[in-house]
């Protein structure tokens, strides 16, 4: 009787303890990574490699998403606005949506899958095969070697990829407007420039920086604390993608409230 009554209580208790432990581990990882920043001789040589892996290698998937998002945005804007407001506002909608929201968020979510998963899987595999222990025995700080270059690469490269993807999305929206809608370039550009503010790009870059920080940190965190064998790495990878995707949406709302 007691057992059946207490089980949910125990479950909640255990869940709470696990969450608090996770917070503690996250705090430990963050302070350790900040301290590891001074070990430039360890993370410095790995930074470029990680920037290529996180940024350059992500360009194809980011552009693929941007191309189709731009086309759909132009067509949906035309469908919604035709007859109600001037058609050149299609350019406004494509530009504003790509820069402020869809470029950063869709690219961020796709990179949460690509970069977050690969970070968690790589670091997690190194954890369960004792490669992280081996790094320590060879006098390397594993946070400086594994986490710092990945997080810095995320912070530097997410904005680059996201700005590029947003630009490509606008270009394909523009092309779709010319080819599929009865619009001229002049009309599209007029709409694009109508409500454009340089702050929009700064806003997108700030969001992108935070997405890069979150995706690589969360991937590193779950990888670093992976347990067991292949199953543990799988769990770590799944959690990394799910949690970083959720945090991207939370951050998206946060920045909208704070900065707009």
């Amino acid at each position: 009787m007691n057992g059946s009554v207490l089980t949910p209580v125990e479950y909640v208790g255990r869940w709470s303890i696990n969450r608090v432990q996770s917070l503690g581990k996250a705090g430990y990882l963050i302070t350790g990574a900040l301290r590891a920043l001074r070990n430039v001789e360890i993370w410095g040589p790995r930074l470029i490699m990680q920037m290529v892996s996180v940024g350059v290698a992500s360009v194809p998937i980011a552009l693929f998403i941007a191309v189709f998002t731009g086309i759909v945005l132009a067509l949906q804007a035309s469908y919604t606005l035709t007859g109600a407001v001037p058609i050149y506002l299609v350019g406004t909608m494509v530009g504003k949506s790509m820069i402020l929201e869809l470029g950063p968020v869709l690219t961020g979510l796709s990179l949460a899958g690509r970069v977050g998963a690969s970070t968690a899987a790589e670091v997690g595999t190194m954890r369960v095969t004792e490669q992280i222990d081996a790094l320590e025995t060879l006098a390397y700080d594993p946070l400086a070697y594994l986490v710092v270059p990945r997080v810095l690469a995320g912070v530097f490269m997410f904005p680059v990829v996201i700005v590029l993807a947003s630009a490509v999305g606008i270009l394909t929206g523009w092309s779709a407007s010319l080819m599929l809608l009865d619009m001229s370039s002049a009309e599209f550009v007029r709409g694009l420039r109508l409500f454009f503010q340089p702050w929009d790009i700064q806003f997108a870059v700030i969001k992108s920086l935070s997405f890069g920080l979150i995706v690589t940190s969360v991937g590193s965190f779950y990888g670093f604390h992976a347990k067991g064998g292949a199953g543990g790495v799988g769990v770590a990878t799944t959690r990394a993608v799910v949690v970083s995707s959720m945090l991207i949406l939370v951050l998206d709302a946060f920045w909208a409230v704070v900065l707009l």
């Binding site: 095969t129 004792e130 490669q131 222990d133 081996a134 025995t137 006098a139």
Partner: peptide, 17 residues
């Protein structure tokens, strides 16, 4: 510094793959 004086041979070698 102490670890430079200690070599550790892991059960499954733990080579960086």
């Amino acid at each position: 510094r102490l670890r430079c004086d200690i070599g550790y041979v892991f059960q499954f070698a733990a080579l960086f793959d």
